[in-house]
């Protein structure tokens, strides 16, 4: 109700005054959040601010104690799980696979919501898995086991599984954790391609603010379970907000490559730079 209308298009997924808790430990109280169609939204915030909890609630992995999640205008509780799983795919933070599982067999499990007890595998499934592997560039690794992959490849294998679900919406919980910079860029380039070329709506939790600014249309900054700011990277990544959310002094300059805001942290020992406090230079990317 109070969530501001997003810029990109009709709302696909919305959290309405949700209260999220693990047992008695309340993480978020009456939180509002909305995802617009065909946008890439990044949720940022310090450790333990409730980013992943919100993503888990959006992806049906955690049931809100109060409030509701709305998917395409329907309360998600009233959508049968299999049907919801054909619209929203979630990549949890640290998924686990049985040892010795081949990439193709992992990705094949993404077809579960499309199958039934008498139709457990079909040519359509085979094509969907092949397409997913092709998108992530993992087709050549299809017969390898997950243990034989590098960290970046493993992450792409898991993303392939979510892609094989063939959903419009993709929720990724820290898809770049444990990856070196090159592999982070690789994964985020894939996210951008999925969004721009294949029309997927993406919500991801990211730790790297500069990459979040570069690769998403909308940033949502959270702290202590509440949304502190939402909007374009320029609107959200201001020194004031960063000080409030992360408790860290920062200078914000324009990214020399993309023109998006670039956050430069300032430690207590550094002199206060001139640029701190000045807004980012350029408007958002195309």
């Amino acid at each position: 109700m109070t969530s501001e209308p997003p810029t990109g298009g009709p709302e696909r997924l919305r959290a309405e005054r949700v209260t999220l808790a693990y047992g008695d430990n309340v993480i978020s109280h009456e939180l509002d959040f909305a995802v617009a169609d065909r946008e890439v939204t990044a949720i940022i915030g310090p450790n333990g601010c409730g980013k992943s909890t919100l993503l888990r609630a959006l992806g049906r992995l955690l049931r809100p104690d109060a409030g509701r999640i709305v998917l395409d205008g329907r309360p998600i509780r009233s959508v049968p799980p299999r049907e919801a799983a054909r619209t929203v795919a979630v990549l949890p933070q640290s998924p686990q696979a049985p040892p010795g599982l081949a990439v193709a067999d992992l990705v094949a499990r993404g077809r579960h919501p499309h199958q039934s007890w008498y139709r457990q595998w079909s040519g359509t499934d085979q094509e969907a898995v092949a397409r997913a592997l092709e998108l992530t560039g993992m087709l050549d690794c299809a017969e390898r086991t997950l243990e034989q992959l590098s960290g970046g490849q493993r992450q792409r294998a898991w993303i392939s599984m979510a892609l094989a679900q063939e959903t419009d919406l993709l929720l990724l919980d820290e898809p770049t954790t444990f990856l070196d910079l090159a592999h982070q860029i690789e994964v985020l380039d894939l996210v951008r391609e999925l969004n721009e070329r294949h029309g997927r709506t993406v919500v991801m939790v990211l730790h790297d603010l500069n990459l979040a600014a570069r690769y998403s249309h909308r940033l949502v900054a959270m702290s202590r379970g509440a949304v502190r700011a939402a909007g374009t990277a320029e609107e959200v990544l201001t020194p004031d907000l960063l000080a409030e959310v992360f408790g860290l002094r920062c200078a914000v300059i324009a990214d020399p490559v993309s023109g998006t805001p670039l956050v430069v942290p300032v430690s207590a020992h550094d002199p206060v730079p001139d640029t701190a406090g000045s807004p980012a230079a350029s408007p958002s990317e195309g």
Partner: peptide
């Protein structure tokens, strides 16, 4: 039939539409 999805952990299985 649910065993494949369950083998990926509870979160992933829920994401795949398994109760």
């Amino acid at each position: 039939r649910a065993l494949g999805a369950l083998g990926l952990g509870d979160d992933a299985a829920r994401g795949l539409g398994v109760r």
